[in-house]
Amino acid sequence: MESRGPPRAPECSPRGDGVLLPYGEAPDGRLVRASEVSAGLDCGCTCPACGAPLVARRGGVRIAHFAHAADHACASTHETMLHRLAKQLIAERAALTLPEVTVEYGGKHHRVRPAMTIHPEGAALEPGLDGLRPDILVTIAKRPLLVEIAVTHFCGPEKVALIQARRLAAVEINLSQIARDTPPDTLEHIILHTAPRRWLWNRLADAAMVAMRVEAARRTHSRDEALERVGCTLAEAAAAPTVEPGDPRLAWAVEATRDAGLSGAVGIAVAGDGCFAVAREIWQSRLVGRHVLGGIPLDERTVAASLYPVMRGGFAGPRPGGIAWRVITGRFPALRPPPDVVLDYVRLLGLMGLLVRDPGGLWRPGRAAVVARDRGQAAAARRVGHSKALGSPRGATRG
């Protein structure tokens, strides 16, 4: 779209800019090729930009072209010629390619209709439309279509907003990258068919955008309902009373932890630990028994998996009810993924000196763990010795 201000004097270079004009303005105002008129000054053509006389040259080396009769060339000749030529071609109802109709919403790209070639039924140059003046107004299937030609000036946001507010089908053709030495046949093909073009407003795109927004709102509503159901189910489960574990190894872990003098390291409240079906002392003793007293290196990325058997239903999955944990926690802060709960507890053991993180990222027993392990082994040995003494009548008699 060319600017609509008052006409300015053409800017000319006294030595010329080397541009060969493929089109000149004939006496009747149309742009014509140099091959279509008489050679030399007899062509009767003028510059489309400054109005100076042109000469038509049809030598054997270069393609037919126009040049200024005087030794100067207008700086805006090429841009003005492109703009006027595009309007002339389309106004004369030449076949015109329209861009594909696409919409993008929520990161999704949808093609509504592929690019298509039309044959205008009618055309008007720069008609006044109540404060809006498009470059060309063409009629297709009895519907109006605004066509804007952009060479150096593109449609600004105010004009685009006005077009969209009035729901006027409009397309903008970008001719800013056309080379100055493009042959006429190629030039016309580029203008009509291959130059970049975009919709400023299209009823199909507008309808598709509305449909995508409605569908997105429906999905959001359904997702919110599903999230509410999953969150409430997990919250109810987390609030249920703990159960007594049936695995004897868990009872052994609690006993071993007590023997080691680590009663103060278990039974600690950790945010979100309602994911466990057993008391805090039990699941934490299980972890302490394996990795603090047992010496098994702890990988914080997988440690929660060893505690899955004592988690409440629904908490062990990475996506409860098909919903990511970060979404659940965002709505229900008290519901945290078990790996995060376990990691918080592991870090507490680190602060106590029971676990130390090595350069590879694994947690290993610290100095405090070694002391606790020795203490636990001594307590266990004393208990075994005491049990043997109580279980031997002869030993008791000799005693």
Rank of each mutant, 00 (worst) to 15 (best):
E2V: 04
G5H: 10
P6W: 07
P6V: 11
R8A: 14
R8F: 10
S13K: 10
R15M: 08
L20C: 05
R30A: 15
V32R: 05
V32W: 01
R33Y: 01
C43S: 13
G44V: 10
A49V: 02
G51Q: 11
G51N: 10
P53S: 07
G60R: 14
V61C: 03
H65C: 04
A67H: 02
A69N: 08
H72L: 14
C74F: 09
L85E: 01
L85K: 04
L89H: 06
I90H: 02
T102I: 11
V103T: 15
K108L: 11
R111E: 15
A115F: 09
A124T: 14
L132R: 08
R133E: 11
D135I: 08
I136G: 00
V138L: 06
R143H: 04
P144Q: 01
L146M: 04
I149E: 00
E158S: 14
K159M: 10
V171N: 01
S176N: 12
Q177N: 09
A179E: 15
R180H: 12
P183V: 08
T186I: 08
I190G: 01
I191L: 14
W201I: 00
W201C: 03
A208M: 12
V214M: 07
T220G: 15
S222F: 13
D224M: 15
D224A: 15
E225M: 12
L227V: 07
L234T: 02
E236R: 15
P241D: 12
P241M: 10
G246V: 12
G246K: 06
G246I: 08
V254A: 13
R258G: 07
R258H: 13
I268W: 12
D273F: 08
V278M: 07
R280N: 11
W283P: 02
Q284C: 06
G289P: 01
G294C: 10
A304V: 03
A304R: 02
A304M: 03
A305M: 09
S306W: 07
P309G: 09
G313P: 04
F315D: 02
P318C: 01
A324H: 09
P333Q: 09
A334D: 14
R336D: 07
D340S: 13
D340T: 02
V341A: 06
V356I: 09
R357C: 14
L362C: 05
W363P: 01
R364C: 08
V371C: 00
R375A: 01
A378D: 04
A380D: 00
K388A: 08
G399Q: 07
